[in-house]
Design a protein around this nucleic acid. Structure first.
Lengths: 263, 263
DNA sequence: AACTTGCGTTTCGTGCTATGGAATTTGTAT
DNA sequence: ATACAAATTCCATAGCACGAAACGCAAGTT
């Protein structure tokens, strides 16, 4: 059986199951077990097992009525999340570079995870002393300006749910009192941006504003972070105003235009 | 190792590799081998092989620079195709039912495949004698009204590429002469709909109009099919006009509105 | 109604290959 | 230059993926 090319690390069951997944997904409609097996020249017993596994994992669905298979919810949800992140990053990048040049501090972009914010892009300041997260890092919502900016604009129910969880204490200054946090969030909602001073990382501060999707749901946030000493109050206020402005512009573009045209 | 629950047809390597795929895709950003293994409690050797396989299959990409993995092009392309098909079908369905009632003949919806058209939906006429394709079937472009409607509005380069391939002869009336086909396509482009008489199936005819995306690229087509005897010229012309109208309305909706809002 | 056909599901024994510990290489930080 | 971490390669083992064949079920045929 002349199967895989050169790479000796290919796991055949996985590779073949992926072919099945691709075929079903590409087919665009319900397709039956036998049809899949015939097309890919895989014995029906094996095809059966792959389809079962793919369905169990949520990548496919198995229609009990017709005994046929189709794309599953997981596939769609992953794709949707990915597309959204790509779009936000793409829209935000030019503005982030602009902001970095304006303030000469690191600019961060993060999306809302579950109870956390996840950095998806950052433009680093050209300075020796700088605070920096890494793309992919996740931090608690309540201890970061990015998170507070998102929290403040979340629907009430979800906001409460987030605050119900145990709140980790990142530094001595991290806010842990429910009352205190809610008070701050009301102010954030009013002024349109959030600030944080040494609550997430000692000696660092951060200013953040939310990015909303077409339903005014805060899906992401933009921030400027700097050492405390380099960011006096007036400058922070100026940064906040600019962030709010830029984040709103990005939000405006999020609902509208289509992506890349097909090949 | 107590792994999978009840279903005895689960193939472990496949299931575990899918968990890896999901983790990487969900992470939203490049992630390293070790991190994946640690998260899922899979030994790194095995994780390595899964990542290799997933990458080879195109579901992930392996960034040589950073030695990290991310969502691959295949995943995106499948998702994009699926979303597009779902949207078209959803938009077209009401209009198709309307058309079926109007003419009491089968109405078909197909998307452009590579060199073929693929049926993605159909509303069957309530008659005993009816021609019918099945969802998922694919037919050549040059022998169907659906295909000709799409061909006529394809960018010149792609149209030529399609006609360069060997053209299969479906019936005695199938057009095979390049000259003849091109002449017809020019007429289709002018009148906005295509017709086909016994060129794909003996005794059947079909009238089709293209559905365009926001870039005026013909991604799909709508058609009415009937036995030749039930579709005299004047009726065919009337059907063509209606199809053009309806297809244009659908095209108009394709570019605009957003999908389902996030949960 | 008996028969056939086609498909999904189940069973089961065999041998292949997926596996993961350990060794090695590569790359990076100190 | 050295240490550390991370990726890749090696290898021996047994666990389980595989597919032929049998089974059950439903739809269509005579």
């Amino acid at each position: 059986m002349t199967r895989q090319s050169r790479n000796p690390y290919i796991v055949q069951p996985v590779m073949k199951a992926l072919k099945v997944l691709e075929l079903v997904a590409r087919h665009g409609h319900e397709i039956a077990l036998t049809a899949v097996g015939k097309e890919l020249r895989i014995p029906k017993t094996t095809t059966f097992r792959y389809l079962q596994t793919l369905s169990e994992a949520g990548f496919l669905t198995h229609n009990q009525e017709t005994d046929k298979y189709n794309i599953g919810p997981l596939m769609r949800s992953i794709a949707r999340a990915d597309a959204s992140v790509s779009k936000i990053r793409q829209l935000a990048r030019p503005a982030m570079i602009e902001l970095m040049n304006e303030f000469n501090e690191t600019v961060n972009l993060a999306v809302k995870g579950d109870g956390t914010i996840v950095y998806i892009d950052l433009v680093e300041a050209n300075r020796s002393l700088r605070m920096q997260a890494r793309i992919g890092d996740s931090h608690p919502m309540h201890s970061t300006a990015l998170g507070k900016a998102i929290l403040a604009f979340l629907p009430e129910a979800e906001k409460q749910r987030q605050l119900d969880r145990p709140l980790t204490e990142r530094t001595g200054r991290t806010l842990l009192e429910r009352e205190e946090i809610e008070r701050q969030l009301r102010m954030v909602a009013k002024q349109g941006y959030a600030t944080e001073s040494g609550e997430n990382e000692d000696g660092a501060m951060c200013i953040g504003a939310p990015i909303m999707d077409e339903n005014r749901y805060p899906v992401a946030a933009l921030s400027i972070s700097a050492p405390l000493m380099r960011m006096p109050r007036p400058l922070a206020a100026k940064a906040g105003a600019r962030l709010r402005e830029v984040a709103q512009a990005i939000s405006g573009h999020l609902g509208s235009d289509a992506g890349i045209p097909p090949a």
